[in-house]
Design a protein around this nucleic acid. Structure first.
Lengths: 132, 132
DNA sequence: CAGTATCCAGATCGATACTG
DNA sequence: CAGTATCGATCTGGATACTG
């Protein structure tokens, strides 16, 4: 698989990566797009402290238990959130965003902001394309 | 559907969007994740000028005709690339990146660079998670 | 050359039911 | 409470064959 491309600055860096590293980089960026990961992460970022599973589920509207579990596991595996389990009955589990998770959101914010600002240009392009 | 969240600066902007605009914003960002769109766009960005379909296909290694067609159509629909068809036999079609497309790549580059630089932290997190 | 059409495998996600 | 297990609808992408 070839390196990622993009612009020159980024390109040069990407060329220094092994194939495994390049794949992981792509995977991390890709995670931005899946339906729930980013939203879940941002909910944890917005909280004052750690959150229980069910609190997260309340705030990420529309998510199923299954999808939330999966999203949280992935985020945990990549070091973006922490998971703390308490040996109690009923069980309590607390999730919190990590410094790397916050970094990640800080990287995404400008892109998202740009997209939001550009939304009318995209709408215009689509109207033109769909119309004729 | 709730607004996107993220950090405060971005949040404030996102709150001003209609639901349709918010959905489109999300869709644009989401396109980063699909397997070929970004790569295709970056190939067009790297070229000196417009490229024919088959030239793009050569450079985006491993892509199928079907996937390339789909990726290019989506990029065109969102105004990120242009498509010019020449009434010749055999047919010639030329694709080129637009200013908005370049803008988009410029937004993505820092994120990608950050991910590439952080790749060892992600590997470490995974090793820890997978190990125990 | 630049597609379209068709079929197929695998992944994703929601809904539901069940459990330590 | 915080999951896991299972099923089914939907989507994605690859391979192949065909066409203006």
């Amino acid at each position: 698989m070839a390196k990622s491309g993009l612009l020159e600055t980024c390109d040069a860096l990407c060329e220094t990566l092994t194939d495994a590293e390049d794949a992981l980089t792509r995977e991390i960026v890709t995670r931005l797009a899946d339906k729930w990961s980013l939203w879940t992460l941002s909910v944890l970022a917005g909280a004052a402290g750690p959150m229980r599973f069910s609190r997260v589920m309340d705030q990420v509207e529309g998510i199923s238990q299954k999808s939330l579990t999966k999203a949280l596991r992935q985020l945990e595996r990549d070091g973006l959130v922490t998971r703390k389990m308490f040996a109690e009955v009923p069980p309590r589990v607390e999730y919190a965003i990590t410094p790397i998770g916050i970094e990640m959101l800080e990287q995404v914010a400008p892109l998202w902001t740009w997209a939001a600002k550009s939304v009318h240009r995209f709408q215009a392009a689509r109207a033109k394309f769909d119309g004729g």
